[in-house]
């Protein structure tokens, strides 16, 4: 009894934090299940009304299109980044040459870069290349801004792979490309997984490039589409909450199924091991 009383403050802090972090999700989901009149009568009642009408509305308003666009752009960019960054990380981590250090620093310094410093020229560039207002306009910047962290993670990982393996392969007459493709890439799988998760989540949520490079609704990604909904839905709070819930759902599901991988992936650049 005394023991559990002494733990009371701990439970209190734990629960306060639980409400602070968790309540907005409860509010979002329970509001999305109300119709508008129920919402105005009882805005804070939790899960007293379960109506799926808002979700149907949201799909009709084109949320599917935003989803598909986001998936397409994120997957294409992330897969390209994984390949390109792995290729670049190989000489950066396993070969000695004069420019090695400088090149590495050039790449990873991109991590501190404010995107705003590149915004206007990339906007002009995509216009000049005829890519403005297309999903293709996003791929280039997305790859470029995912490279620094990816190269950082992959070179760290590659440095720890024992040299003896590739020496044996070299004696057997394997070229550098052969070593990379047959020995390095298979061993990189866990690091590539981290790179995939980290970049996918960041690109899935990316906003500012989409805001600047895309303008027509059919090319919008999910974050941009949500912002567009906000304009149309401003009085229909439950409708907007349904859209927000749907947009958050994929990440929550992935997280619930593989918490550890997601946590490790999301902190990839910061937590080693």
């Amino acid at each position: 009894m005394v023991q559990s009383l002494r733990k009371a403050p701990l439970y209190l802090v734990g629960l306060l934090l639980l409400v602070f972090t968790g309540y907005p999700f409860v509010y979002m989901i329970s509001t999305s299940l109300k119709d508008q009149s129920t919402f105005f009568e009882k805005p804070f009642a939790i899960f007293t009304s379960i109506k799926l009408g808002n979700y149907a509305d949201v799909f009709q308003m084109g949320l599917t299109r935003y989803f598909l666009n986001s998936i397409l752009v994120s997957v294409v960019a992330v897969v390209a980044v994984m390949l390109i960054a792995a290729l670049a990380s190989y000489p950066l981590s396993r070969m000695k040459f004069r420019l090695n250090r400088g090149l590495f620093l050039l790449f990873i310094s991109g991590m501190m870069l404010p995107i705003h410093a590149t915004l206007i020229p990339i906007f002009k560039l995509s216009q000049d290349m005829g890519l403005y207002d297309s999903l293709l306009a996003l791929i280039g910047p997305y790859i470029a801004f995912s490279l620094p962290i990816s190269i950082f993670i992959l070179t760290q990982f590659m440095q720890e792979i024992p040299k003896s393996l590739e020496e044996a392969a070299k004696i057997d007459g394997c070229s550098h490309f052969g070593i990379f493709w047959r020995i390095m890439l298979p061993m990189l799988t866990p690091a590539l997984m981290t790179v995939f998760i980290y970049n996918f989540i960041h690109l899935w949520n990316e906003f500012i490039f989409a805001l600047v490079l895309v303008s027509s609704p059919e090319n919008m990604t999910l974050p941009l589409g949500l912002q567009d909904f906000y304009g149309e839905f401003s009085v229909n709070v439950p409708g907007l909450m349904a859209a927000l819930s749907l947009a958050s759902l994929p990440m929550l599901v992935v997280y619930l199924f593989s918490q550890e991988k997601v946590v490790k992936g999301l902190t990839g650049g910061a937590v080693k091991g």
Partner: peptide, 19 residues
Amino acid sequence: FTAPALIVYLVYVVYPILS
């Protein structure tokens, strides 16, 4: 090995900052 990364990086990061 480095060309693909370097080209993308030069076009979308280094060149824009200088511009």
